[in-house]
C-alpha cells in the first residue's frame, strides 16, 4: 500500500534522505527507527505529500504522490511530529473542520467525528478548547484527526512522544489494532515500541536504511538486544536536517 523507491531529499548540498526504498502492505505496521536527525520526519513528510521529493517514487495504494497528489493524499491519515493544532478551536470543532477538508459532510461527518473521538478517548474534552488541554489530550486530538476518513494508510510521526506511560500503552494498543486493517508507517526512537506494536522495522541512519527485518530478526541480529543493534548500526550524533 505504501511503495517507496529510490526516495531522495536534498536541502542545498545536504542529503537528508538518500535513495531510500521500502514498502508497507495491508496488515503491516512498519516501525521506522533511527537517531534524531536521521531523516525519519523528512521521509514521512515526503510520503504524505508535504515535501516534494528530490528524486524517487512514492505510491500510495498504487497512486503516485507526485503524479496525482490529491488522490494519493485522500488515502492517508497523518500525525505530524509535533501534533500541530489550532489552539483556539474546541476538539470537536477542530475535528469537524478537518473532516470537512477531507470532503466529509452532513451525517457522514458527524459520525466520523464521533467515532474518532471515541477511538482516541476524547469524550471528556470534546467541547473543551484545545489551548486548555494537556499534552496527552492534544496528541490524541491530532491522532483523532488522522483517523477521521478511515484511511487505508496511516503515517504517524512519533505518536507516543510526550505521553505518560499509560497513554503510551493505549496508543501502542491502538496502533496494533488499527494495523490489522491498514498499512501503518510509524516512527519512533523508543525501541520497546518495536516489539510492542510493529510487525516489521527498519533502522535509518543518515538518510540510509541500515537494518530491516521483523522485531525478532533484528533482536537476533543484535545478539539478543535491539539496543545493541541500534548502537552498532547508527551514528552517535547526526545534525538535524
Amino acid at each position: 500500500m505504501i511503495e517507496v523507491t529510490g526516495l531522495t531529499k536534498r536541502f542545498g548540498s545536504k542529503v537528508a534522505v538518500d535513495d531510500l526504498s521500502f514498502s508497507v502492505n495491508k496488515g503491516e505496521v512498519l516501525g521506522f527507527l533511527g537517531p534524531n536527525g536521521a531523516g525519519k520526519s523528512t521521509t514521512m513528510r515526503m510520503v504524505t505529500g508535504f515535501l516534494p521529493v528530490s528524486a524517487g517514487k512514492i505510491k500510495i495504494c498504487g497512486i503516485s504522490m507526485t503524479g496525482r497528489p490529491k488522490a494519493a493524499k485522500r488515502k492517508i491519515g497523518y500525525l505530524p511530529e509535533s501534533a500541530p493544532l489550532y489552539k483556539d478551536m474546541t476538539v470537536q470543532g477542530f475535528l469537524k473542520f478537518c473532516a470537512s477538508l477531507r470532503g466529509l459532510g452532513g451525517s457522514a461527518r458527524r459520525q466520523a467525528v464521533e467515532k474518532s473521538i471515541e477511538t482516541c478517548f476524547l469524550e471528556n474534552v470534546a467541547r473543551q478548547s484545545i489551548g486548555t488541554l494537556s499534552k496527552g489530550y492534544r496528541h490524541r486530538t491530532c491522532l483523532a484527526q488522522s483517523l477521521l476518513h478511515d484511511p487505508e494508510v496511516l503515517v504517524l510521526d512519533e505518536p507516543t512522544d510526550g505521553l505518560d506511560p499509560n497513554q503510551k500503552l493505549e496508543v501502542r494498543k491502538l496502533i496494533k489494532n488499527l494495523g490489522k486493517e491498514k498499512a501503518i508507517l510509524f516512527s519512533t526512537h523508543i525501541l520497546e515500541e518495536v516489539t510492542a506494536a510493529c510487525t516489521r522495522a527498519v533502522i535509518v541512519d543518515q538518510g540510509v536504511i541500515v537494518a530491516d527485518g521483523t522485531p525478532e530478526q533484528l533482536t537476533k541480529e543484535g545478539g539478543g538486544s535491539l539496543y545493541d543493534l541500534f548502537h552498532k548500526v547508527t551514528t552517535f550524533e547526526t545534525p538535524a536536517a
Binding site: 508535504f50 493524499k73 497523518y78 505530524p80 484527526q145
Partner: peptide, 10 residues
C-alpha cells in the same frame, strides 16, 4: 506547524 496539516490534506 499546522501548515503541515493543511499541506497534507487533499
Amino acid at each position: 506547524g499546522t501548515i503541515e496539516l493543511l499541506g497534507t490534506f487533499p
